[in-house]
Amino acid sequence: MIPTYSYLVLGCILFSIGTLGVLIRRNVVIVLMCIELMLNAVNLILVSVCEPVFVFFIMMVAAVEVSVGLALIARVYRKFGTTDISTFGQLKG
């Protein structure tokens, strides 16, 4: 019914859309969302090869990452008044 590679292809498409978003968006919140999209693409592929446990771990890490990331973003926003990714340069070496 469903072709063999379909989930892999779908996962790859979603993953590359997510990567594209990470690269071309400047709003850091959206970048974080695109990373979520990438993680979910991986999840989809993992479910299709029957690895449910890893999916759980990815979900856990995603939840942690988002909460900490958003807290950081809120903090940065309070300090600099923007979420434009290209303006953050304070950690310059």
């Binding site: 959206i30 926003y77 434009d84």
Partner: peptide, 12 residues
Amino acid sequence: LMNLKDVPEFVS
């Protein structure tokens, strides 16, 4: 919470 209307959305 943050009104993000003024951020340029795409790379320049």
